[in-house]
Amino acid sequence: MFEAKLDRGIVLKKILDAINQLVNEASWECTSSGMSLQAMDTSHVSLVAVNLNGDGFSKFRCDRNMVLGMNLVNLSKILKCAGNDDKVTIKAADGDDKIKLIFEAPNEYEVSQYEIKLMNLDAEYLGIPETSYNVTVKMPAAKFQRICRDLNQIGDAVTISCTKSGVDFSATGDLGNGSVSLSQNSSFDKPEDNVTISMQEPLSQTFALKYLNQFTKATPLCSQVTLSLSPDVPLVVEYKIIEENEEDSKNEIGHIRYYLAPKIDD
């Protein structure tokens, strides 16, 4: 038996919005410690890994490990039927070919139930090696989204260059070129606007904007995004999954990490 309840169903909606264009089908692995998902896009250029901690749920029970393969586009459709303030419960019985989704409205007298068919997916799991990254940039998620969107007007790829003075995002195309430079800054009043750069050695790497623009669909999950880079390894774009409660308290319940293979000169 598997049962997981989130008090703020909107978090699940945001997670699905963040991944369902990149991957259409994937398997959730459920264990006593939480739920996780790993999947590559169809061209195998990027990989998304979602992790939700069991203790981030208001109720979490997983008697034995389960793999719930499903069509994420369909799951997303069903989650659209839940109100943003609904409590959402996911239930799966051992050996069943479907999961149940239960939405409880805040008024406490309206309950909706949906079922979604499970699929047997031949998932390929990749081992992600422990890496210590040369450069880590923590910046406002909305700023990163804006930069990727703007530079995609200029070209298909962005070169991220990091030096002592800051980080540069630049693109070149038929019409010309463009760049956005950010230097480290911190504000006591608005920590969500901070740009934090940690660098061991200067670095410059190029990535396809098509994928980065897909990753920024996770922007509503968290005010800050972390980019981790090292020469000749995939870029990591990480968003924490933050549940905002009624009292405005923020609770980190997991993360989404996107890995993007670089473009490398022949």
């Binding site: 990027s46 990749l126 081992g127 293979a261 022949d266």
Partner: peptide, 14 residues
């Protein structure tokens, strides 16, 4: 000319 690598060039299948 830069070439797009795939993720499986870096991460091995389990």
């Amino acid at each position: 000319m830069s070439k797009q690598k795939t993720i499986t060039n870096f991460f091995k299948r389990k």
